[in-house]
Design a binder for these strands. Sequence first.
DNA 1: CGGGTGCTTGAGTTTGCTCAACGGGCGTGG
DNA 2: CCACGCCCGTTGAGCAAACTCAAGCACCCG
Lengths: 189, 189
Amino acid sequence: MSDSENVSSYNNILSGVVKLTKMLPDGRQQIVGLQFAPDFLGRPFRASSQTTAEATTDVKLCSFPRSIVDKMIRETPELEHKLHEQALAELDEAREWMLTLGRKTAAEKVANFLYMIATHVEPGAGEDEELTFDLPLTRADIADFLGLTIETVSRQLTKLRKDGVIQIVNNRHITVPDIERLAWRAQVD
Amino acid sequence: MSDSENVSSYNNILSGVVKLTKMLPDGRQQIVGLQFAPDFLGRPFRASSQTTAEATTDVKLCSFPRSIVDKMIRETPELEHKLHEQALAELDEAREWMLTLGRKTAAEKVANFLYMIATHVEPGAGEDEELTFDLPLTRADIADFLGLTIETVSRQLTKLRKDGVIQIVNNRHITVPDIERLAWRAQVD
DNA sequence: CGGGTGCTTGAGTTTGCTCAACGGGCGTGG
DNA sequence: CCACGCCCGTTGAGCAAACTCAAGCACCCG
């Protein structure tokens, strides 16, 4: 499924990446969350206030009707606990991105984004080994994620490439020789 | 208590406002959440990743030791449910602010902030009555909340005043004759 | 071959930042 | 009591980072 929708059911992401976006009346758009496998997708107890979920890559979902899951949550505390944990994790991520959105420069934002994808795709971030991965987002999506324009994203990527921090194989395919240099540019921790 | 701390216990906010901030190594700072009475304050299950809680006004807290609350959560599902609900509410707020931080102009950000405070302080936002309230944050805090500088916040506030959208009595004390005009400037919904 | 999409690059503009000066309120100490 | 320093906020002038607009390239698909 590659469709956009206002999430009205619960879904387990089996593979792929889903973006959560918010939009202003005049079309300005912001991605407010990225969900990877094996996250849950869907808002318990409430309609998700003006947020849209859309796949950015091919996605495999396992979908459950809302009513059933709501009932299950009420009956099994462990399930609620698990969802609670995920909500807290998403909250932490959201707040981390608020720092990025509010206080980092375009260069830092782009480096941050690459760093996040790199560490997410390859969780065992080997100390000094070379990392390689595909971007799950187009330039337009990256811009919407970072609160920038497409052009600025493109320029910053070129700058990182010229500085030797990354290699760009295929527009989508990125190689990071030294993750620490990227982390430095991203101002992480 | 007017102190800054890394929250290591649970607190119930009885009155006042608490800000949650994140900071970069070089001192850049971002407020990632505001908590009003009667919110819970404190991160279940995990140390709050590099987030600091600090009162912005006089605050009355009711504090519980971590161990006891963790035990209570495990025993009473309703308590976990309540905390889960608040986490989801905070997540919605955080994402709403991501849209503001990433995609709105300085003017819209400031209007948005005032609108948020106004509706938060006076939840029964009377249709066409005049609204008046005290800002719980200094200009510096507002800037850190909106990802702007003090100067820009100040300039936007004077602009709103000159345009008759708000009146500024006391630097802290604000009057809003028509909340709808403010909402318009804030690009809300 | 033509059109569409996604990305890059350049030139000029604008928004918000930096730096600096200034003013009011307030507490402290002479 | 006034003088002083400090904090908080405002305002102005100049600058820089990111945006806008425009052109052009590569690739894919009909």
